[in-house]
Design a binder for these strands. Structure first.
Lengths: 265, 265
DNA sequence: GCCCGGTCGCTTACGTTGTAAACGGATCAC
DNA sequence: GTGATCCGTTTACAACGTAAGCGACCGGGC
């Protein structure tokens, strides 16, 4: 299908050696028997990736694991908590990503950049799961999507503080960063499932009645090809760089509250 | 409860005369009998706002309207499409907002600012509905959340083109703008339902076992008050202004494509 | 050896969900 | 009057999440 294009998106699943492989989930032919929470969550992720979130029911997930639905309840309190576990598992893949570090070693910008791409890799690897990451209610105001893990929040804030951000600036940075990631990635994955060409309409009228009448939206029609173009990778990069620049300005400013530096960054 | 604070958030429901009132939905005491698509969608919105999305079932919505569940199917093909209709209705409130204009009259920055605040007002007025706006799959790549209406896309693009943006820049602006809105507003509404203080735990251990152990996250604990602070309005404003500034730079640059930028991206 | 408490998946059962299909009573045109 | 049309109800069914109890295994103490 898609052979490794040198211009390929480095965060797309095809562009790497697989999805960070933090959750092998099930050694494919082996270990058939042992049910267990990790195996269930892994199977749930696979199932959602393959069939969509709506298709996931306890019964179907059970039979996907070769087991009756009720067996799952030994390891998971219920469906809601299973979804919580799925979200947690997916985010936990970050820990297995060799390109993302918990500590800041090459500067905070490097840290944020690696983290952002790590999250983006996860979002692209699990496009059907990611909206779940985005919409599950957070346990507390500071555990917000898409990071969703106190450990990452802690790591983020420490990195900022260690790099000269004030506490206020670090918190503001955290919020700006989460919003940016969430917005971009949610839109990017939601765009992935969209068909542009009608593809195959089984029968019926040959070509008319294509969704709604586009006659009243000439600009949309004229720019259709531009609008349909997928520039996600470049736009992500640009917005991320802009955000980092903005944060650097905030950092500089907050370090020398009196008088200013005429040349920020 | 909350009396009109002069520093109040101008987009919050309390800060205005009510939610743009584009959908009276049901003249409260009158017109009991006539069922009708608009009335159903209005009731669904009220119901979700009051009881949350999960609580909405066809049967419950029916009895909320004083009718059996199956009666709804005369006006709505099914539950999924009902939710689509809800999203559409909520976004349609923008048309009734006197502060938001379809055409650009005082410059594109004014246009974008009014539009952004209009959408934010909607999000805050319907915090339980907004995640739905964000996650329903778009019909086409160019109809993306949270605008979700070809008419707004058309209006947006026209505004940009009329203001000197090239086609590419207009499309890029549209994408950056949607991402920004979606990310900020989704996080803002998701934060609204979060309890900070334990509030009332019915019984049990007096104070321990508060969710997870916070002992390993000293920075989070130390910054808890900052993290819990709700600065959404100011942050929204700041990020919006930053975005507008960025777009202006793009616009300037794209007008004089040859010569010019000493700083290639 | 045997027994025995524990673990684990299965079976059965119940209330709720979305929705197809048929039904009946108004209301209307003629 | 008389049929057609509208519109809410009734009935029915498969699928859902999950509570409760069952039985087949298991490793350790006597």
């Amino acid at each position: 299908m898609t052979e490794p294009d040198p211009r390929a998106d480095p965060d797309s699943p095809e562009g790497r050696g697989g999805t960070a492989a933090a959750i092998p989930a099930a050694p494919p032919g082996a270990g058939r028997s042992g049910l267990d929470r990790r195996r269930i969550l892994g199977a749930a992720i696979e199932f959602i990736d393959a069939n969509g979130l709506n298709a996931l029911t306890m019964r179907r997930l059970g039979s996907y694991l070769g087991v009756e639905a009720m067996a799952l309840y030994r390891y998971v309190p219920g469906r809601e908590q299973l979804l919580d576990g799925v979200v947690e598992s997916v985010i936990d893949e970050l820990y297995g990503d060799p390109d993302v570090h918990l500590g800041v070693s090459h500067g905070w910008q490097d840290y944020l950049q690696r983290l952002a791409h790590g999250v983006r890799r996860i979002a692209l690897a699990h496009p059907e799961v990611f909206p779940l990451v985005a919409t599950r209610p957070p346990a507390a105001p500071w555990v917000r999507p898409p990071l969703r893990s106190l450990r990452w929040v802690e790591s983020f804030l420490e990195a900022m503080l260690d790099s000269g951000f004030t506490e206020e600036a670090a918190v503001a940075a955290y919020r700006a960063y989460s919003s940016f990631l969430l917005g971009h990635l949610l839109l990017e994955v939601s765009q992935k499932g969209v068909k542009i060409s009608p593809e195959d309409q089984p029968e019926g009228v040959p070509d008319a009645a294509e969704s709604t009448d586009l006659r009243n939206y000439p600009t949309v029609v004229r720019l259709e090809s531009l609008l349909s173009l997928d520039e996600s990778a470049a736009e992500f990069e640009e917005a991320l760089e802009n955000l980092l620049g903005r944060l650097e300005a905030v950092r500089q400013e907050s370090r020398s509250p009196r008088r200013g530096d005429p040349r920020p960054s």
